[in-house]
Design a protein around this nucleic acid. Structure first.
Lengths: 216, 216
DNA sequence: TTTTTATAGATAAAATTTTATCAAATAACT
DNA sequence: AGTTATTTGATAAAATTTTATCTATAAAAA
C-alpha cells in the first residue's frame, strides 16, 4: 500500500448485510420468528453456505433444524454495521439526485438521518418536501461546527468536489459519501466512500454480452 | 450454483473500468497522449500493479518507459465493456430518483441513452427538462415492442417491482438495471443488476468504525 | 424411545483477486 | 555508442472470498 486506503476485510459480506436486513425486517413484520440460510439464499440468489458464512460475521448462532432467530439477527447485524443510530449526516449539493436521497426509504430504514442540506439558494424548494432544513453553502463550515455530524453526503458538481471536501474536512467531518466522479484527497482521519453508478452499468453490460442466447 | 446467476469473472476489474475511462477522457481532452499505470493508480488510490492487471483485460499493450496510449486505451475499454453504443434504455418509474438519472453526466458519458420514460401521469413534468418522451405506464408493453430497447432502468416502488418486471420480460427486455430493493425473478435469457445504496453506506460505516483515532 | 431428517457449523478445498518480484524493453542521458 | 533509469509484462506468491464436505445437533416422525 503506497497510497493510503483503509483495509476492510469481509467487504463483500458487509455489502450484502443490508440486503439481509431488508429481508429479515420483512419477515419480522410478518410475524416470523426463525429463518433458514437456504431461505435467505433463495431470496438473495446466492448459495446457502455463503449466507451462513456471512451471518457468522455477526456472531449469531443458529440452531440446527430451526434456523436463525430473526430478531436476534436483525439487532446483531445492525450492531455489527454500527448503523442503527449515530448516522447523522448533512447533504451537500441539492441537485435532483442529491434531493432524491432525502426521500430514499432504504437509507432511512438504515438509520441515515439528514439534519441539514446545503446548496446555492436556488434549490431550497427541493428540501422542503422532505422537511430538511436548507442553508446556503457559505454557512457550511459555521453550521457543521455546531451540528455534530459525522457524515457528509457529497452530491455537488465534480468541479467543486475537492473544494467542498476541504471545507468538510476542516469542519471536522469524519466520513464523506462521495457521489461525484472525483477521487477525493482527504487526510488520514477522514474516510471516503465513492459511489459510481457507471460501474453498475458496466456490470450490467458485461452480464448482457455473456448472456447472449447464441452462446450455447 | 443451485440458483441461477451468470458468473462474471474479473468483476472487480469491470467495476473499475468506468473510473479509468473518466480519468483517461479527462487526459485526452487536455491533449495528453500517454499515461502510466502509476499515474492512474495515484488518481484511483490503488496500486500501480493493480492498474496494469486491470488494463491487461482490455488487451492493450503499453510500452516500457512511456506508458499506455490514452486514445487506444479509451477505445479499448469502451469496446471491452460493449457500452460505446447500443446502450438504449427506457426508464420505468419517474420518481425524483429515477428522474435524476436522466440528467446524470457519468451515465451519458458512458453511452446510456434513455429513449422513453414511463410512469403514472403525475410525473410527466420531470422528464420534460431532460427532453425524454414520457408515457403512461399502461403503454409500456406496446411501446417496447416498437422501440428495440435492450435495457430497462427500474425505479418504481418496490411493491410494483416484480409486476413491472414481468411486463418488461414479456416485452423482450434483455437487461434490467434494478434500483428497487426487490430481488427480481427473471427467466434465463434476461439479466439483472441490482443497485443498493445502503450497501455503500454500510461500507462507509465499516470504514468509520475501523478508522477511529483511538485505534492506535 | 428410536430413527429419520433438516439445518447449522467446523474444516478443508477451490476459485478469485490482489500484491510482489524480477526480467525485458525503451527512452533519455552521458 | 554505451549506460542508466523508468516502465511494462510475465510469473509467482499471498490474501481473500466462495464453495464443498462432513459432523453434530435438534426437531419431528415412527
Amino acid at each position: 500500500m503506497n497510497f493510503r486506503s483503509i483495509k476492510i476485510d469481509k467487504l463483500p459480506t458487509i455489502r450484502r448485510l443490508p440486503a439481509y436486513l431488508n429481508i429479515l425486517r420483512d419477515l419480522f413484520v410478518k410475524g416470523e420468528q426463525y429463518v433458514s440460510s437456504s431461505y435467505l439464499a433463495e431470496k438473495m440468489f446466492v448459495e446457502p453456505i455463503l449466507v451462513r458464512k456471512d451471518l457468522e460475521l455477526t456472531r449469531v448462532a443458529g440452531t440446527p433444524r430451526v434456523g436463525y432467530s430473526i430478531e436476534e439477527l436483525i439487532t446483531s447485524i445492525e450492531e455489527f454495521l454500527g448503523c442503527s443510530d449515530n448516522l447523522d449526516a448533512v447533504l451537500v449539493g441539492v441537485g435532483q439526485f442529491g434531493a432524491s436521497l432525502l426521500g430514499n426509504r432504504g437509507l432511512r430504514n438504515f438509520g441515515l438521518r439528514v439534519l441539514a442540506a446545503f446548496d446555492e439558494d436556488s434549490h431550497k424548494a427541493r428540501t422542503l418536501a422532505h422537511r430538511v432544513p436548507f442553508f446556503e453553502i457559505d454557512r457550511l463550515e459555521e453550521l457543521l461546527q455546531r451540528l455534530h455530524v459525522t457524515i457528509a453526503i457529497l452530491c455537488v458538481p465534480s468541479e467543486d468536489a475537492q473544494k467542498i471536501t476541504d471545507i468538510l474536512v476542516a469542519s471536522g467531518i469524519r466520513g464523506i459519501w462521495n457521489f461525484t466522479s472525483e477521487n477525493l484527497a482527504v487526510p488520514e482521519h477522514v474516510v471516503t466512500q465513492k459511489e459510481d453508478l457507471a460501474s453498475g452499468l458496466a456490470v450490467l453490460c458485461a452480464k448482457l454480452v455473456r448472456n447472449r442466447p447464441t452462446h450455447h
